[in-house]
Amino acid sequence: GLPPGWRKIHDAAGTYYWHVPSGSTQWQRPTW
């Protein structure tokens, strides 16, 4: 699974990851 606080988001551009507490997003899968 993903580290705490991360969500996987799907949209028209593809899949990305959202860090809910900080509001940051990234294309790379977050690592622990």
Rank of each mutant, 00 (worst) to 15 (best):
D11L: 09
L2N: 01
P30A: 01
Y17H: 04
W6V: 00
Q28I: 09
K8W: 11
Y17W: 06
H19L: 05
I9Y: 05
W32M: 11
R29N: 09
P30E: 03
G14N: 04
H19R: 01
Q26A: 06
H19V: 02
G23Y: 03
W27F: 12
W32D: 10
W27V: 13
I9W: 06
V20D: 07
T31P: 07
L2V: 03
V20K: 07
W32P: 08
G5F: 04
L2H: 01
D11R: 10
W32I: 10
W18Q: 12
H19T: 01
I9S: 03
T31S: 12
L2A: 04
R7G: 01
T15R: 04
P21V: 10
P30H: 04
P3L: 04
T31F: 08
G14E: 05
G14A: 05
H10I: 15
W18M: 14
P3A: 04
G23A: 04
D11H: 10
K8V: 15
W6N: 01
Q26S: 12
T31R: 08
T25I: 15
W27E: 09
D11E: 07
G14P: 02
S22A: 03
T25E: 06
D11S: 15
P4N: 06
T15L: 08
G1Q: 13
S22T: 13
A13P: 03
S22K: 03
P30Y: 04
Y17P: 01
A13E: 11
R7S: 08
A13H: 14
R29M: 12
H10D: 13
G14V: 07
Y16R: 09
G23T: 01
P30M: 00
P3H: 01
W32K: 07
H19I: 03
G1H: 12
Y16G: 05
W6A: 01
K8D: 05
L2S: 04
T15W: 11
S22M: 02
G14R: 07
R7F: 11
Q28S: 09
W27P: 08
W6I: 00
W27H: 10
P4M: 06
W32A: 10
W6L: 00
H10P: 05
W18I: 15
R7P: 02
Q26R: 06
P3Q: 01
Y17T: 00
T25M: 14
W27S: 12
P21F: 08
A12Y: 07
P21Q: 08
G1S: 13
K8F: 11
D11V: 11
G5Q: 02
W18K: 12
Y16H: 04
A12K: 12
T31E: 13
A12T: 10
I9K: 05
G5D: 05
H19P: 00
K8M: 15
K8Q: 14
P21W: 07
G5K: 01
S22E: 01
W27T: 13
Q28L: 10
S24M: 15
T15P: 06
G1W: 12
Y17I: 00
R7E: 09
G23K: 05
Y16A: 03
S24V: 15
S24A: 15
A12F: 08
P30K: 00
T15N: 07
W32R: 08
W6R: 00
I9D: 02
V20G: 07
A12N: 10
